[in-house]
């Protein structure tokens, strides 16, 4: 019986965040291992694999890998693997 179940027993396998809102917008992504990148979101899938355009990587201080420097390097068009992504946030609105 396909009854309507409440939120706590939902069977749908949808993501809790709707990435379509971020399409064509710049987002900031953090990876396992500490790397950080930003780029324009061109596509995504349910596994959180992302396509980022004009992506840049924020380089870290070699002495203290947890500290970001102001250096960046260009990455171009990339596919970011969902399994390695730890944090996703919109780039604008960050202060």
């Amino acid at each position: 019986m396909p009854g309507e179940k409440d939120d706590s027993t939902r069977k749908k396998k949808e993501s809790i965040v709707d990435l379509s809102r971020f399409i064509d917008k710049k987002i900031r992504v953090k990876f396992q291992g500490g790397r950080e990148a930003a780029g324009v979101l061109k596509g995504y899938d349910a596994l959180l694999n992302l396509v980022l355009d004009n992506a840049i990587e924020y380089l870290r201080d070699p002495d203290d890998p947890h500290k970001l420097t102001n250096d960046t390097r260009q990455l171009g068009l990339i596919v970011a693997r969902g399994t390695a992504i730890t944090v996703v946030a919109p780039n604008d609105g960050i202060e």
């Binding site: 965040v17 959180l48 730890t86 996703v88 960050i94 202060e95």
Partner: peptide, 20 residues
Amino acid sequence: TSRDGDRFQKMPEVYVRGST
């Protein structure tokens, strides 16, 4: 807040992977 507690960033929303 960064690991050292010295850097702050405000963001309107953020998605965090459970495994981290």
